[in-house]
């Protein structure tokens, strides 16, 4: 029996090693016993932008925290290039839905924070932080405090801080939810190019959102969560050229497919 388990684990790891990030057979319950997920499997390939969609309250943000090692699943494992993730690591950086900056630090200092913890010299840290800010279009704003910035600029600072940590994977929890539509649209258009530019070591992105147009615009692969407890009810591959046109027929066909998956959830009787 034990030998079977070891063999299974070895196979899982070998399979997971083919992916940047891989979640295998994830079950998770809240402390009050409410079962959130059952047998969730998600794979993120090389340079792949993966989106997870689902109705409000289904547990998308919780899943993202499991992928980042912030929460421990009841069953199943998360692998980064085949290596199990048991705690948060700078290799997988979480971008929060509520934009997180530190009000007592300037934009530059906010970004330098993720470099200082890597024992980089001050000069190198500043240089790298300036590069990261430039990458997100904030050159010239290095000395501003978060309070002096718009929501969109603050989110760019948070993304620059994340990029400066040289992560392999980005986990983005509805990163545009607190921005006005125009700012969100501008950042959405920039984000793919920023993330997968040759200057970043990034190998994969997982975006959580309930905005279906947004995910079709950005993602290569879309996982649809539904039901209680949540399971992956569908996976949609988006093979449209970039930049994508939300008014095109193909775009709308994909949107329709997503809507079909998101019919009212089935509640599993326990």
């Amino acid at each position: 029996m034990d030998e079977d388990l070891i063999k299974d684990n070895a196979m899982q790891r070998a399979r997971a090693a083919q992916y940047v990030l891989s979640a295998v057979g994830i079950d998770f319950s809240y402390e009050n016993g409410y079962k959130v997920f059952e047998n969730i499997n998600i794979d993120v390939g090389q340079n792949e932008f993966v989106a997870i969609v689902g109705p409000s309250g289904i547990g998308k943000s919780t899943l993202l925290r499991i992928l980042g090692g912030f929460l421990k699943p009841d069953r199943g494992s998360v692998y980064l290039f085949g290596k199990p993730i048991i705690r948060p690591t700078p290799d997988i950086i979480l971008i929060h839905q509520s934009i997180v900056t530190f009000p007592w630090l300037t934009a530059l200092e906010n970004v330098m924070l993720s470099l200082k913890v890597r024992n980089v010299s001050d000069e190198e840290a500043e240089k790298a932080a300036r590069n990261a800010l430039e990458m997100v279009g904030l050159q010239g704003f290095e000395d501003l405090y978060p309070k002096e910035m718009s929501g969109g600029m603050r989110q760019r600072v948070a993304i620059a801080r994340a990029l400066a940590a040289s992560p392999l994977v980005f986990l983005m929890d509805e990163p545009f939810a607190h921005l006005d539509e125009l700012t969100a649209e501008g950042l959405r258009q920039d984000i793919y190019n920023i993330l997968f530019s040759p200057d970043t070591p990034l190998k994969g992105v997982v975006l959580v959102s309930h905005n279906l147009t947004e995910v079709v615009e950005l993602a290569d692969e879309i996982y649809v969560l539904n039901n209680v407890p949540a399971t992956v009810v569908g996976k949609v591959h988006v093979d449209l050229p970039r930049p994508r046109n939300p008014r095109s027929e193909e775009f709308n066909q994909i949107l329709d497919a997503l809507y079909n998956y998101l019919t009212p959830p089935k509640v599993k009787k326990l």
């Binding site: 925290r65 912030f70 690591t89 997180v100 530190f102 007592w104 924070l113 913890v117």
Partner: peptide, 29 residues
């Protein structure tokens, strides 16, 4: 302190004194 701050500190693998100096002491000022 906002829960997100603790997630950032964990995410960046910040050590005890680094947490104190950069986040905890200014955040509790």
């Amino acid at each position: 302190l906002p829960a997100e701050y603790f997630e950032v500190m964990k995410n960046l693998n910040m050590g005890y004194f680094s947490r104190m100096r950069s986040i905890i002491l200014p955040g509790t000022f």
